[in-house]
Design a protein around this nucleic acid. Structure first.
Length: 437
DNA sequence: TCTGGGGTCCTAGGACCC
DNA sequence: TCTGGGGTCCTAGGACCC
């Protein structure tokens, strides 16, 4: 009607969860089609554990986190292919998939490297409905990046997660499942078939306790009263139950909140026994974490450092320790953070141990622009520090991390992690581009 | 020989204050 | 012999997520 402002109808929220199947393995397969149909695992740093498994490997019963050396029998029997993780490649592929999703809905939360939530209630009709929209996203991501995804729709994030699980595990959905379009009977039937441990927010511990209460399936949890969940498990599980029943409690976080702490740590490729070796590794971690700190325009007021021996070698003498150094002034200067970290390390270090791992955490972060001035502030020094850091970040952005780094890190890096089976950085390094022949 | 790394939130309990 | 009540802040530990 002319002259009348039409109020949009109030719509209940609808969330979509788009998730790449076996993400790391799928990235590898995009560039090496010979991996298709073969059992493939991608290994954690140091080529330690399986962190991604192809369906063929899952079918062999290999669990997430299984150490590579413990699956050598299966590797020989079934020809499992193990690849070192290539986070540069995965990060770039993730950005490409996310860019496509942004064209479908402006309300998007990039939840992890391989999953995004979207609010779709105001845009799904543009694509002919939710399932049609999901199918279109799936096809476009496949065509433009080569990655396979599944899509789940629900009235809440927890429901969307569940719908995504159905889409992934049950071929009859064709990779796209809309829980909001199901009849109550159909929904309960599916929920009755799935283990309660699959619900988002139910981990191994709570899963066991729920089982002990005879809550075994998703439907059982659906039917458990909020009061019971509150009394037995607390507010988080109460919320999970409400979400499962369709009351949205978890909002879409379309702007990522700044991190409250930033951590960097690694196991060593070889054991480290000297203070010098540990110092180099700690400085390396400070470089990494401080770059992230500046990226989110924060400063840190404390640095935590920890060291550990190899807890899996029961016969070796064991030692682990950590300590926090508070800083007088909040800072984002790598050099100041590093000085504090090395001071902490000197306190922690005990000779005579074979160290396996160390790490640092930047804590008590605050927004740089709101930094508290202190009595002894030296503005000139601050400005100079900011310039040095800006140059360092800019060089490292262009030429790759570690191009310009603290001298404290050294060049030998005997502690560096193993990564012997890494694929090329096909999309981000000129000299590693794929070649068509 | 070989066992990942990076986060968040909640709760309970103690210290301390008035 | 009797021994308050309410509140905040901090920390450690436990649970979860990918």
């Amino acid at each position: 009607m002319d002259g009348v402002i039409q109020q949009p109808p109030l719509r209940m929220p609808v969330f979509a969860l788009v998730d790449v199947n076996n993400f790391y393995v799928s990235c590898e397969r995009v560039f090496d089609p010979k991996l298709d149909g073969k059992p493939v695992v991608v290994l954690s740093n140091n080529d330690g554990c399986a962190v991604a498994r192809s369906n063929e490997v899952k079918a062999l019963g290999v669990k997430m986190g299984t150490p590579w050396f413990k699956m050598q029998d299966l590797v020989k029997q079934h020809g499992i292919i193990g690849l070192s993780s290539n986070y540069t490649l995965y990060g770039d592929m993730s950005n490409r998939a996310t860019a496509i999703l942004r064209n479908y809905s402006p309300d998007i939360e990039v939840y992890s490297i391989d999953e995004s939530f979207l609010r779709v209630e105001t845009v799904a009709h543009l694509h002919g409905g939710k399932v049609a929209m999901g199918t279109a996203m799936k096809a476009q991501i496949r065509q433009w990046t080569g990655l396979p995804v599944c899509v789940g729709f629900g009235a809440t994030k927890t429901q969307a997660k569940f719908a995504n699980h159905l889409a992934k595990k049950h071929p009859e959905f064709g990779g796209v499942c809309d829980l909001t379009a199901m009849s109550n009977d159909a929904r309960s039937a599916w929920m009755s078939k799935i283990d309660v441990g699959e619900v988002w927010g139910v981990g191994p511990r709570i899963g066991d306790r729920l089982n002990a209460m005879n809550v075994r399936t998703v439907q059982d949890l659906f039917a458990t009263s909020p009061a019971t969940l509150r009394a037995q498990f607390g507010v988080v599980m109460e919320r999970t139950g409400n979400e499962l029943r369709g009351t949205s409690c978890l909002a879409l976080e379309d702007v990522a909140p700044a991190k409250k702490q930033i951590m960097a740590s690694r196991s060593f490729g070889e054991m480290v026994t000297s203070l010098q070796g540990l110092s180099e590794a700690v400085s390396w971690h400070v470089d990494t974490a401080a770059a992230k700190l500046r990226e989110q325009a924060s400063t840190a007021s404390a640095v935590y450092v920890f060291v550990q021996t190899n807890r899996f070698r029961a016969d070796d003498p064991q030692y682990s320790g950590g300590t926090v150094i508070p800083l007088r002034d909040a800072t984002d200067d790598t050099r100041e953070l590093n000085a504090a970290a090395l001071c902490a390390l000197k306190r922690l270090f005990r000779p005579g141990y074979a160290y396996k791992k160390c790490g640092i955490m930047l804590m008590e972060l605050s927004v740089k622009a709101q930094r508290q001035q202190t009595l002894f502030d030296d503005d000139q020094a601050r400005t100079k520090s900011a310039r040095v850091m800006a140059v360092m970040d800019s060089i490292n952005r262009t030429w790759g991390r570690g191009t310009l780094r603290s001298a404290a890190i050294g060049n030998s890096q005997s502690w560096a992690m193993r990564s012997e089976k890494r694929s090329p950085r096909y999309t981000t390094a000129w000299d590693e581009l794929p070649v068509a022949s």
